[in-house]
Design a binder for these strands. Structure first.
Lengths: 340, 340
DNA sequence: GCGGATGATGTTCCCGCTACCAGAGTCCGG
DNA sequence: CCGGACTCTGGTAGCGGGAACATCATCCGC
């Protein structure tokens, strides 16, 4: 199976053993159509025998394409961005692309400019920006980049290719669930509003709440962290005048429930809480969290489809809407004094 | 700042504008010592002006080094492996290396052979395997690889470079904590024992428990998931005859507490639970989880140090022990009828 | 004042692959 | 039976860097 000599065989060695020119080998590798079947088989046999692998660096140099997608994620700790990244990587690998990723915020902060530099220096064929802050997008817009750029963000943007998970649908599902339980006084604990996803959830919440005639409270803006929500809950003075909280992500929902618990406010008895993300622990925290699950796998596929089309200068395919799903668990119930 | 023409400048264009040969530019880039200061400055100015970036593919082709480390992680969902991966990436980037990673189990399973193939085809300079199963290691041992390979695993292994987090220390801390609270009957809920880390924790638990004269129960082997632990807890028939559980990771600890709660067994009142990992939510689940935190950042640094030394054929540095830390929260207390 | 070490730079070739052009054989219709 | 189209294969010239060696100055000690 393996060749005896330690160093890697190259295309010319394959060619020599197969009795053809190295160009024919190259054509076999690249599935050029007009190769005689016998020749192709002979070449493939030699490739197998030598365990030959094409040298990607050489190929990249010759073709000016690296078969690599660069990904910039806003943060490597939040559930949404990391899930998107993983899905994207898996899909990309399936289609022969490699992925290089870089987190803007992972310990210390890296500027969008640095991230783009790092990735373009690696010679990526396209760039994907996941779950960004509006400030990152603004910075990005100022950088001249001559490869396709896709941004995963809620609204279309003429400067970039865009895809998104439908934040509106997920949020609507959550609000409708609370309303159907009988809640009419709902607080929204939002993510940082410079995150476009947080902003989109906030807007969708506002719109849906209004259309149901829900009495909204001024929203509380958090930072995605359980700590923040915990501190917020601990700081509540009187019994709240709302009966439910729609929280922009599960981490904050869990922190909120923790803080509420310490203040003697029970979920869902005194207050219903619905989260967003369906993190792995959401089903097992106490009480198990009602939350919204998004389809990251489909998102990954959509991203790679678009990017490949852009790289290969094919027509950009239309992306179908990616549905969200509400998972009703135990952190939501009818408000007190209401029969479900 | 940017040059007018759209296509990227190359080293010869820089050379021409600086009035030197391309080799002088190359030497400036690679910090070759004998360059006249005036020349160096001139070259750097032109580089700046053209916004020149060296082409990594060309460099890789010429040097036979890609400045890229390949990482194989067993799973992209568990907290430990992903934390290690992120720390490693950040450190590597800081030293001019890029990282390509691949998860053996992310949706569907990829064989170690496929993973190695994928990464070596990308031309990585070294391989790092994180948090592996013993079966993966066995498979790895059969594959002939002619780049340095480092495995993050609890015990030294003559076939590879190795580093590890000290599972023994963390486990010992946890057991000592339970013993000091007065627990003498402790159950261990382990991770899948073909995971080396799970095995190491199990062994360390056994050793420490024995040395304290703790009455161990036959260990329960889980799969890292909260679901498993939940099901296990739900299946408990009578009140348990142990007063504490040492769980091999936080996810299972949370699932366990959930299941216990449904069976009417309260934590820590009836049973103390200590986890392992300190996942982000550990401080906020109910009750907040006593757990062991490991220093992944230090691990990342150690990995990159070793790998770089191996790649550059320098002497392999000695790795200092990476300490673990016990975080005592509310899921542990003295057993009933005991005064703390 | 001269040989040798050292500093500072240039020339050439090659890394492994593909784009591009060329060329030989084959088939077919008029 | 000849020209054109199509099939299949080969040769050559880069892609953008760096290694190795060559080439000059310059400096130094004796």
């Amino acid at each position: 199976m393996a060749n005896t000599s330690a160093d890697k065989p190259n295309i010319r060695q394959v060619a020599r053993l197969a009795g053809v020119s190295h160009m024919t080998v190259s054509r076999v590798l690249n599935e050029y159509p007009h190769i005689k079947e016998a020749t192709r088989r002979r070449v493939l046999e030699v490739i197998e025998e030598l365990d030959y692998r094409p040298n990607m660096a050489a190929r990249a140099l010759a073709t000016q394409k690296s078969q690599r997608i660069g990904v910039i994620v806003e943060s490597a700790v939040e559930f949404g961005p990391t899930s998107t990244l993983r899905a994207l990587e898996a899909t990309a690998r399936g289609t022969g692309y490699a992925v290089s990723s870089i987190a803007l915020e992972d310990g210390h902060r890296i500027s969008p400019q640095e991230a783009v530099d790092n990735l373009t220096t690696q010679g990526v064929d396209a760039l994907c920006v996941v779950a960004p802050r509006s400030s990152s997008i603004a910075a990005l817009r100022k950088i001249s980049i001559n490869i396709p750029v896709l941004v995963v963000k809620p609204d279309k943007d003429p400067s970039f290719l865009t895809v998104s998970l439908d934040q509106k649908e997920g949020t609507t599902l959550a609000v409708d669930h609370l309303v159907s339980l009988g809640h009419r006084d709902i607080l929204h604990l939002a993510g940082p509003l410079d995150w476009l996803d947080a902003r989109a959830r906030e807007r969708a919440f506002h719109a849906r709440a209004k259309s149901w005639g829900v009495r909204e409270r001024p929203i509380v803006v958090g930072d995605w962290s359980a700590d923040f929500a915990y501190d917020f809950a601990k700081g509540i003075r009187d019994r709240p005048d709302y009966t439910a909280v729609f929280v922009a992500n599960d981490d904050m929902a869990v922190g909120l429930i923790h803080g509420l618990h310490e203040r003697g406010i029970e979920v869902p008895g005194d207050l219903s809480v619905v989260g967003f993300d369906d993190v792995p622990l959401a089903a097992h925290v106490l009480p198990p969290l009602t939350t919204v699950r998004q389809n990251f796998r489909a998102l990954g596929v959509a991203i790679v489809d678009l990017l490949r089309a852009a790289i290969e200068e094919r027509e950009i395919p239309r992306v179908t809407k990616i549905p969200a799903e509400l998972l009703v668990r135990s952190s939501t119930a009818a408000p007190r004094g209401e029969d479900s």
